[in-house]
Each structure stands twice: as C-alpha cells, then as structure tokens.
C-alpha cells in the first residue's frame, strides 16, 4: 500500500529534474524523429512491464 506514496515521490522527483532530462531528450542535434523514437521505447517498455505484471493488478 505504501508503494503508492513512494511512486508519487519518484514522480515528483522526476518532475523537478525533468528540464535536465528533457534537454537531453529533445536536443536538436540528432535526427528530427529521435524524441519520438525514445518516447515510443518508453511506451513499449510500459507495455512489457504491464504484461509481466499480470491482468489482475489493474
């Protein structure tokens, strides 16, 4: 149950430091579609984790 609060704290931490991460992510040096490719990989990772977790948890 307490995992939820930990997760919220992690999200808050990511949010605070997000400009640094986003600067790297959205840096205009690479190909124009790089930010989208990274975004897609994040979604794919989420799908993978979701399938591993099983259907009864959501």
């Amino acid at each position: 149950m307490y995992n939820y609060r930990v997760a919220l704290l992690v999200v808050f931490g990511l949010y605070v430091f997000s400009p640094v991460v986003i600067d790297w992510w959205l840096a205009p040096n690479g190909a124009w579609y790089h930010p989208f490719a990274i975004w897609f990989l994040l979604i794919a990772a989420h799908i993978f984790v979701g399938f591993k977790r099983g259907s009864d948890e959501l």
Binding site: Y33, L42, I43, H46, I47, G50, L58
Partner: peptide, 20 residues
Amino acid sequence: PQALRQASWGLPLFLLLMSL
C-alpha cells in the same frame, strides 16, 4: 474498467502518432 489498463499505454501511443 479493465480497458483503463490498455489506455495506460494506448493513449500515449495515440498521442505519439498525433504529434509525430
């Protein structure tokens, strides 16, 4: 209610395609 599970990745994917 179970569809929220698919929406957790389905909506981000939809928005990715929209923004591309």
